[in-house]
Amino acid sequence: MTGNEAIAEGAIQAGCTFYAGYPITPQNELTAYMANHMQKSGGVFIQAEAELAAINMVFGAAAAGARAMTSSSSPGISLKQEGISYIAGAELPAVIANVMRGGPGLGNIAPAQSDYFQATRSGGHGDYHCLVLAPASVQESYDLTCLAFTLADKYRSPAIILSDGLLGQMMEPLLVRKEGKIELPAKPWALTGCTGRQANVVKSFYLKEGDLEKLNLKLQKKYKEIQQKEQRWEEFFLTDAKVALVAYGTMARIARSAVKVLREKGKKVGLLRPLTLWPFPKKAFTMPKKKYLVIEMSYGQMLEDVQLALCGKAGVEFLGRSGGGIPSEQEIIVKVNKIYHGKNI
């Protein structure tokens, strides 16, 4: 199964009953899979007329209490930002998958990680955050999509799956969970028809003085809780490492290969792989004696979060390419060797 299909299957497994999307390479397998399977599983699939329509349909479905999802790739995700901001402002749960490609502009269709800032820094207007999860395998594309729905519901917040073209297109074996029906949380705030109860209101528009500030303070409190409770990461040969690589998604797989090669040569090198990009796993950066090497398919976006997490307590180096360029295992090994022998610090 491809990574794209695994995201779709994960969503269905998680009880997603509403999907709206608009085609764009390299995420089309996701939309196609939903077209094939959504109805069979009792859900709704809509190929919308545009990205804006799709995200606003998700907005509506989420307001009605459904587990709702859309997906796209970089330029399409830019188009959805207005809707994502509205969903965050209305405190609705929704899942958005971004299978990143090269930018800026229409860019190309090669894999990239250049939407990190957009995903982790509230890509639309206003003071909000989305939960951002970064799978690095087909299995994780599935698992983290399930988790994204759980977290989105728990915090009534949009959650982003940040994948990339390579991960979306590749096939790997997938173990599908054989659980029966998932128990969905109650949503007493949803717009389900107010016969016999007081009407619920879902909105992001607050004109009365002080009301919007109240909403913002509530959001900030929620974001603080998320930052405390939901940081996730994986460590690979990290404890005794002199040089710690930091990478996520596809780049983390390539970094992992480099770590294996370097370990075989007796070099103490490890990998720290963030699973959540927001909240960024600051708690993992507790070993200031190391040297850190951040590797991205972009020109230094996660790099800033690593620098913030370390507050100048450790040296941070960077290796990145973008626009379709992918740092190779060999490039990483060369860079690590330089840092290891103190040539670059």
Partner: peptide
């Protein structure tokens, strides 16, 4: 477990 799926 396979790291990079890309072959140089």
């Amino acid at each position: 477990e396979i790291g990079s799926p890309f072959i140089d």
